[in-house]
């Protein structure tokens, strides 16, 4: 049952992606991106990644949508199609896609328990997490303890990005392209 639900959700994901490519109203694009995030969150629940699903539902479908709408409030909301030819990007993308799919064919089949990814490091986490940290949620114990340096780095990136946005948007304001400094 699990693989069937998974395949159905992934097919819907592909359909929404195609709709995003074709949509020219940016409001439509933002709402479709929000639907896309909810579908990703559902797929993640099926894949047993509940912590990640919760994050994607609140961040991807919530905060990013709000920020994109807040930005759309400040700019024009209809996309103008570019005049340059669109065939080269399509060819490059298709070529890249076929190459990477060809590369994934040698990956272990979906859902097998003896894949190499499950043999290294993780069995020890599963065995010793309770004994060493008293925390049954492995994601929390790895996030904050075993791989604490990673998370410290990620928090620093969030800090830096936040400071960057505040520097860009809280400064003095200049409207229109005519008074551009030369």
């Amino acid at each position: 049952m699990e693989p069937i639900i998974n395949m159905a959700l992934l097919t819907m994901l592909a359909v929404v992606t195609v709709a995003i490519i074709g949509q020219r109203s940016l409001f439509g694009v933002v709402i479709l991106a929000s639907i896309y995030s909810f579908l990703i969150a559902s797929v993640l629940v099926v894949l047993d990644a509940v912590d990640v699903a919760m994050t994607e539902a609140s961040v991807g479908a919530g905060i990013s949508t709000v920020l994109l709408l807040a930005a759309l409030h400040l700019v024009k909301t209809i996309e103008v199609l570019p005049t340059q030819p669109r065939l080269p990007p399509l060819l490059v993308s298709a070529l890249a896609g076929v190459t990477v799919i060809w590369g994934t064919l040698v990956l272990p089949p979906f859902g097998t328990a003896d894949a190499p990814i499950h043999r290294h490091v993780v069995p020890r986490y599963i065995e010793r997490s309770i004994e060493e940290t008293n925390v049954p949620n492995l994601v929390s114990s790895i996030l904050a303890d075993y791989r604490g340096y990673d998370t410290l780095g990620e928090t620093t990136v969030i800090f830096t990005a936040g400071i960057g946005v505040l520097l860009l948007l809280r400064g003095t304001r200049r409207r229109g392209h005519n008074d551009r400094a030369d």
Partner: peptide, 8 residues
């Protein structure tokens, strides 16, 4: 977050 899905 220590016992179920969730965290900071």
């Amino acid at each position: 977050g220590d016992y179920g899905p969730g965290g900071g």
